[in-house]
């Protein structure tokens, strides 16, 4: 495997070495797939969206500005691709996508998830899967991709303040669930 930086890979692809694009795919495919699965809640759709996203990125690579970060640019494509799939399938998640006022409405799910969880980690990760889409995306981009809130706001096309609100609100709600089930006592 070639040992090239992202910038070098992009330059190489733009020079006509199209095969080098596979290196970029290998870097981002898993993280983008995680993001897409959280948005589309379906493995097959996520796989299709993943391929479409990389194809779009390849076709518009010449418009990528070198002063920008590739991850931010690419995740924006991934996010928009997922949004268009959602729109085309007319999924009823408008409530989740419409505003920053998203709130958790777990209903009976919390009890079911709690009953089926082995420990606090298992429980919380299952709850993350039930988060409103944008809350889940902010968490993934922040914790898995280590992106800054500024970068996240660019990807999701929301203000920096809204990105911060989504992250903090998610943490606060998850904290209340931890307290509800007294999991914090596991900490010494």
């Amino acid at each position: 495997m070639k040992n090239l930086t992202e910038r070098e890979i992009i330059e190489s692809v733009l020079k006509g070495n199209h095969g080098d694009f596979a290196l970029l795919i290998d870097i981002y495919k898993d993280r983008a797939f995680t993001l897409l699965k959280k948005m589309l809640k379906n493995e097959m759709d996520a796989e299709e969206a993943l391929q479409d996203s990389f194809l779009k990125a390849f076709n518009s690579l010449s418009s990528f500005r070198n002063d920008a970060k590739f991850s931010t640019w690419f995740y924006r494509i991934v996010y928009n691709t997922a949004l268009s799939i959602i729109a085309s399938k007319k999924r009823k998640i408008q409530m989740e996508m419409s505003s920053v006022e998203d709130h958790f409405d777990l209903g009976d799910f919390d009890d079911r998830i709690y009953a089926s969880s082995e420990n606090s980690t298992d429980y919380l990760l299952k709850i993350v899967d039930r988060l409103p889409v944008r809350n889940a995306l902010v968490i993934i981009l922040y914790y898995i991709d280590n992106l800054s809130l500024n970068e996240i706001s660019n990807i999701l096309n929301i203000s920096l303040v809204n990105a911060k609100v989504l992250l903090h609100r998610s943490r606060n709600e998850l904290r209340e669930l931890i307290i509800k089930h007294n999991y914090q006592e596991e900490l010494l």
Binding site: E47, L124, L125, Y143, Y183, Q184
Partner: peptide, 30 residues
Amino acid sequence: KAHQMVNSILKRINVELAPEDTTSKIMERI
């Protein structure tokens, strides 16, 4: 305690692996 617990668990979210043939499929489409 609960807030710190949330933060430490979120740091452990697993990346889901894309199907093995993803790269070859995308390169074929390209």
